[in-house]
Amino acid sequence: MSEPIIQMKNIEKHFGSVIALNGVSLDVLPGECHCLLGDNGAGKSTFIKTMSGVHRATRGEIFFEGKPLDFARPRDAIAAGIATVYQDLAMIPLMSVSRNFFMGNEPLKKVAGISFFDHDHANEVTVQEMKSMGINLRGPDQAVGTLSGGERQTVAIARAVYFGAKILILDEPTSALGVRQTSNVLATVDRVRNKGIAVVFITHNVRHALAVGDRFTVLNRGKTLGTANRGEITPEELQDLMAGGQQLATLEGSLGGTV
């Protein structure tokens, strides 16, 4: 088995007197889809923000490709190859797809010693990358605001992959999507994983997790409740873990296993 690309050991994060994370451990292998499950407020978002350099852990260790690591800024994490696609997508609706695609990583060309934004290159790459993800743009200057939620998700994923992400963190990518858009995004996740990129997939939807996940880690009240491999755990068990071991059985009975 290959070495984990990132290891998070006993991560703690305190915000003033609030303990958001109280000892969370997780490791991610290249080319796997590691699902991070948890109910609202379990600390999923805080945890991935620690992984992507937005927050600094109060306590705990992070090893990236075997070396200890301490990101001061999100830019450091991005440079190291940790890309995050947030729930709110980090896309700017008023800007064109190609401006969004290269935001923060603008391609430059020098004219008379001055660096300019290389729009031709940016447009060409954007159209090509979108096509490879199955989206036909009207044009690279189309505003992101005109794309559907699933398409925006795909743009964000394509962007991360294009810029050499080794770890792709997806924060609830399917929570606001319809059925067909969800399956598109899940297919994209599969495509990305097959390129050898590690995917951390955050969700509270057990069915979406089981559809693509290789391993599953459950967070509850700022703690990990262990990691399970694919095939070793049933949807019911995952659901119970997310609820903190409380039996959802009675409720589940009346809902017919649809939660």
């Binding site: 999100p74 995050t84 700017i92 935001m103 923060g104 990583n105 934004f117």
Partner: peptide
């Protein structure tokens, strides 16, 4: 025509989203 220009648009379009991308 410049990278900085893209940052100006991004900062005003959605400061948080812009920060996420560095």
């Amino acid at each position: 025509r410049t990278q900085f220009g893209n940052w100006i648009y991004a900062s005003g379009g959605d400061a948080q989203a812009a920060r996420y991308t560095g």
